[in-house]
Amino acid sequence: MAIIVNKEEKRRAIALASKSLLLEHGIKNITISKIAECAGVGKGTIYEYFRNKEDIVFEIISVFIAEHEKWLHALIREDISTKEKIKRFLSQLYSDADYEKQLSIYREFLAISLTSNVDEMRDFSRACRERFQIILDQIVDEAILMGEIKAESKEMFGMLHTYSLGLVVESKVNEIDAKVHIDQFVETLFTIIEKKDIR
Rank of each mutant, 00 (worst) to 15 (best):
Y94Q: 02
I112Q: 05
E9S: 11
N174V: 07
F190S: 01
D79N: 14
D141C: 07
R122F: 14
E175K: 13
E24D: 15
L90E: 02
I60Q: 05
M156D: 04
D55I: 06
F185A: 09
N174C: 10
E142D: 15
H25F: 10
L103C: 04
C38I: 00
K172Y: 14
H181C: 03
D137N: 15
K196V: 08
N174F: 11
M159I: 01
G42M: 10
I105V: 13
I135F: 05
M159S: 11
K150W: 00
I32C: 13
H181K: 05
K10S: 08
S116F: 03
I182A: 02
L75G: 11
V5Y: 08
F132K: 06
L165F: 08
I80K: 08
L114A: 12
R88I: 06
A15R: 06
G147Y: 02
I198M: 14
I112P: 09
I4Q: 12
T115N: 07
E108P: 09
L90H: 01
H161V: 10
I76Q: 14
G26H: 03
I193Y: 01
S95F: 01
I86K: 08
A111N: 15
E187L: 02
E67W: 02
Q102D: 00
E170S: 13
N117P: 01
R129N: 07
G158L: 04
F50E: 14
E194R: 12
S20V: 03
I4D: 03
G44H: 05
F50W: 14
E48H: 15
E24R: 13
I192S: 10
R11A: 06
H73A: 07
E59C: 10
G42D: 14
S18T: 12
H25M: 10
D141N: 13
S116K: 09
V63H: 07
I80W: 06
I27K: 04
V57T: 03
F58Q: 06
Y163F: 13
V169D: 11
S62N: 15
K85T: 01
Q133R: 09
E48G: 09
D123A: 13
A143I: 00
K43G: 00
S20M: 03
H68P: 00
R12Q: 11
C38M: 10
Q138I: 03
E78L: 08
I56N: 02
K7N: 03
N117V: 11
V169A: 15
Y163C: 00
F190G: 01
D119Y: 11
Y49Q: 06
K101H: 10
D177G: 11
Q133L: 10
K10M: 14
G147W: 02
